[in-house]
Design a protein around this nucleic acid. Sequence first.
DNA 1: ACTTTGAGTGAACAGCCGTACACTCAAACC
DNA 2: GGTTTGAGTGTACGGCTGTTCACTCAAAGT
Lengths: 211, 211
Amino acid sequence: MTAESVETRAERKERTRRAILDAALDLTEDGTLSTLSLRQVAKQVGIVPTAFYRHFASVDEVGLALVDESFASLRALLREVRQGPVDGAAQIVDRSIDTLVAHVHRHRAHFRFIARERAAGPLAVRMAIRHEIELCERELATDLALLPGTAAWSSDDLRVLSGLIVTSMVSTAEALLGAEGRPEAEQQVVRTARTQLRMLLIGALNWHSRT
Amino acid sequence: MTAESVETRAERKERTRRAILDAALDLTEDGTLSTLSLRQVAKQVGIVPTAFYRHFASVDEVGLALVDESFASLRALLREVRQGPVDGAAQIVDRSIDTLVAHVHRHRAHFRFIARERAAGPLAVRMAIRHEIELCERELATDLALLPGTAAWSSDDLRVLSGLIVTSMVSTAEALLGAEGRPEAEQQVVRTARTQLRMLLIGALNWHSRT
DNA sequence: ACTTTGAGTGAACAGCCGTACACTCAAACC
DNA sequence: GGTTTGAGTGTACGGCTGTTCACTCAAAGT
């Protein structure tokens, strides 16, 4: 029988590649990308150090791949929030934060990775992350332009507000990671985030460009 | 004659200690504390590796000392801003941001260090930084309580607002570091920060606790 | 069936790492 | 003036690092 060769060659390669990414994600939980050694990764994956080069030219490239992955899932999250109904402001706030919390739970390792490397990673990785966050800000700004009340806003002011919101959400995500596994601390973070977003929204509603 | 022994023993030790801290600050410009090796530091200072232990038990302890230093100067900054006159809101915003910009220029290395290690440093260092930032938030909250218009605010809401402001200032500082040496980019960051703080202020002025 | 391809192997290398240990020798102390 | 102290020295060690090179050997291509 030789039951249908269960794994094609490309599949096996892809599986190893995934294993490398997962190992890197796991091993950066303590330490940075720059402290992550190729040999540690290889050992955890179960391959010999030199086999690593069949998949990536350096550890930094693994970092860039992880940035792509992380923001791919984050963009999926944002799309999800965005296509929801535009009901009251309070509902938008609550729904956004609930979605963020769920996503941080689901992709904790990715968020931790981004939070760390955003400030401390290799230059190329830092630049990639900064670029992705800027894309998020831009997308949010175009969405905000569609909201009632922002008709008279300058595009600069829209970008400023979206920057403010993104910054607040990033720091909320970081706080959630810090509250790991302590439900009451996490609830506190969620309450704070809700109030923060509402304050921001009130500021926005009373804002008039060109004052 | 033997002209007054120019350096006492304790002075010399202190000078070496400073040299170690400066070297660490300089060498972390590329890489993190965890990638910083005791041997690199020793070489830059001009001492043999083992002499390092006369001053610090580990690289992490150097990190903690640097956290102390950084926030000592930051607290001086905050005191300076705080004791200024309480004129119009716009003046407070402008003065705060100008002071921040000046301070980031003066202590760029320290700010870079904090920005990096806040997310990526050793656990003890991360905790120390988080604690210091929390102190800043608390002090700001008590100052905000003295401002007109916040009389009816709950203490929770005061903390939330001060958290929002601190977060915004931290991200402004990070943006300033990113705009290193490009004056037009830096001016853009300053303009954005001003608008952000004003939006926050408007949100605060229209806020009513317990809604 | 024969050839090519390429993921994974295994030994070897030069270099850096932290740290242990025994030491010097001048300032500080009594 | 003799003794103690302690910052800085020099050597040596085992362990981990990235990268090289020549290799196997089964799947894929022809």
